[in-house]
Design a protein around this nucleic acid. Sequence first.
DNA 1: ATGGATGCAAAGTATTTGCAACCTG
DNA 2: CAGGTTGCAAATACTTTGCATCCAT
Lengths: 160, 160
Amino acid sequence: MDGSPDLLRAVREEARRRGVRWTAQRQIVLETFLASGEHISVDELHHRVRQIDHSVSAATVYRTVNMLVDIGVAHKRNFGNGSATFESALTKEHHDHLVCTACGGIQEFHHDMIETLQDEVAKNHAFCLSHHRLELYGICAACQSKGLAAPGPLVETVEP
Amino acid sequence: MDGSPDLLRAVREEARRRGVRWTAQRQIVLETFLASGEHISVDELHHRVRQIDHSVSAATVYRTVNMLVDIGVAHKRNFGNGSATFESALTKEHHDHLVCTACGGIQEFHHDMIETLQDEVAKNHAFCLSHHRLELYGICAACQSKGLAAPGPLVETVEP
DNA sequence: ATGGATGCAAAGTATTTGCAACCTG
DNA sequence: CAGGTTGCAAATACTTTGCATCCAT
């Protein structure tokens, strides 16, 4: 979605500031990552990167995204579907996720009241909040219409 | 935390009803799983099971917990730390977590209004919700008094 | 020049699966 | 007895790492 020069430069400078060397491979991975705009897996990112430079290895992509997470440029997400996905921590505002357990599809949402109540919970526990993670799992509309309804509880809860 | 005869029997009957055969191994895995009460990994579950019957293989534990998820007795959770964890869908009441990033301590909380708003979000997206994951990360009261403040963002967000 | 970065392949983890023997229903 | 289940080992899938070489600083 975005690969503005400002953003690219800011990230490169931050990396250098931390003694991380800037290579052609990292430039391509970063550009491709930011341009993807969405949640992207290492495998998919590697595929796209190789369309620009076929010699870039998967190991380098792994190393680069991990570096991006280290310097706060990317978020690593684990939605339980095998491989992790990464998304930019810079261009998008905070949002939470709806994860379809049937097709693996992801929708984003933001709910101010929920955010506010989370702050309240933290306050009540004397917690100094830095960030949070909220994921809602279920079956999306499309999968429901395909007959992949979420099964209800199959065994009734037994109260001890 | 719980392995009441009622619960064990209910699960066994549900499994049989679905043509799943009940074996000594599955009985031990189920009992151990329900008795653990908390999120438990396959590795840890396997360890505990082997204290009862040393011959039970990891493959059987994997197969059994997957079966428990299939019949709605267990939830599979992925906390991004490598291995998945499983928790009973029957005996435990739902709760979320406050995670201290300084000491690793965990506090549980439950907030009805947040739960309700999550249901609302799901409804607005035509999602059939099965479960969710909410974790608040920050510094707990004890660590704050030790002067361990949370670090801010390392690269400023650049608006396109 | 110095030490971090790269590509490759091998090594790790986590989890699943093929198979022959075994057991439940 | 039929067909699901088991233990074992091999196979997958994802990610990290050792190493010789390369390159940014």
